[in-house]
């Protein structure tokens, strides 16, 4: 078109990071559960073999469905926890939601060998290909897509700066607690080890990582409940992070 694509007068806060294939997302694939790993009292990681999985970029999610004998179907979106190139496997870390028909099945019924269906990977806006310096901010199971990024960077020995601020109620509620390294600052809201302050994520957590920002600044990725996302994104804006470089994924 001579006039070119329409561009809104204000730049969109979160332009997509990667091109997304419509064809891979359209296909339902059978995923076989190969292992279950407990993370916390409330969360566990489910590992699947997915023949034909197209591969994902850290931060992407998938859609999953369970089918009852009478044909009733329950579908949910879940972030992918594992890095790309995991040998045809993907991992999901799921909270056991009270009364949740899907998470309840995973936490109380599922066992290795069970088969479910998935389609994806989906969406490109929360994806991190490992290129730009990344400031990751998550709470609870909001850390799941961020962990895919941390694992990807580690697996490939990438030099690109990356920092993770992760909020949990206490040390026992911190998912992937044993995997964090120097890139991570945990924030504990209810209980903490001796000498570690207890309280909500605040400017005192954000300021040091903003001060470390590499030339060109951070690309910020925020994931958690809506209340956490609103709180954390305001902290980032108040600390000087540009709104058009904050990507937010909210539960729901």
């Amino acid at each position: 078109m001579a006039s070119g694509r329409f561009r809104p007068p204000s730049r969109f806060a979160v332009p997509g990071r990667i091109a997304v294939s419509g064809s891979t997302a359209a296909v339902w694939r059978t995923a076989t559960l190969t292992g279950i790993r407990r993370e916390t009292a409330r969360a566990a990681t489910f590992r699947f073999a997915v023949p034909g999985w197209a591969g994902h970029v850290p931060g992407q999610h998938l859609m999953l469905r369970l089918t009852a004998a009478d044909g009733y179907v329950a579908q949910r979106h879940y972030s992918i926890a594992s890095p790309p190139d995991d040998g045809g496997h993907i991992e999901l870390t799921l909270d056991h939601v009270e009364g949740g028909e899907v998470s309840g099945w995973f936490h109380t019924v599922a066992r290795p060998g069970d088969r479910i269906e998935v389609r994806g990977p989906l969406s490109g806006f929360f994806a991190w290909p490992g290129d730009r310096p990344a400031l990751l901010v998550g709470a609870g199971s909001g850390v799941v897509p961020l962990m895919s990024m941390v694992r990807h960077r580690r697996a490939h020995g990438l030099d690109v700066p990356l920092r993770l601020l992760v909020s949990a109620r206490g040390p026992r509620d911190l998912i992937y607690a044993d995997e964090y390294g120097a890139e991570t600052t945990p924030v504990f809201t209810r209980s903490a080890p001796v000498g570690v302050p207890v309280g909500r994520m605040s400017a005192t957590h954000v300021a040091p990582v903003m001060a470390e920002a590499p030339p060109g600044g951070w690309e910020a990725y925020v994931c958690g409940s809506n209340a956490f996302a609103e709180h954390a994104s305001r902290l980032l804006v108040e600390a000087g992070q540009p709104v058009d470089r904050i990507r937010i994924e909210r539960f729901g």
């Binding site: 059978t30 369970l66 089918t67 009852a68 004998a69 179907v73 329950a74 028909e101 088969r115």
Partner: peptide
């Protein structure tokens, strides 16, 4: 149809206002 072993799901409510694949 790929039935998921042991999955029963929520009690069925016949709701003509609910599009396919959605929950209330």
């Amino acid at each position: 149809m790929h039935v998921t072993r042991g999955f029963t799901g929520r009690p069925r409510v016949s709701d003509p206002g609910l599009p396919p694949g959605q929950y209330d």
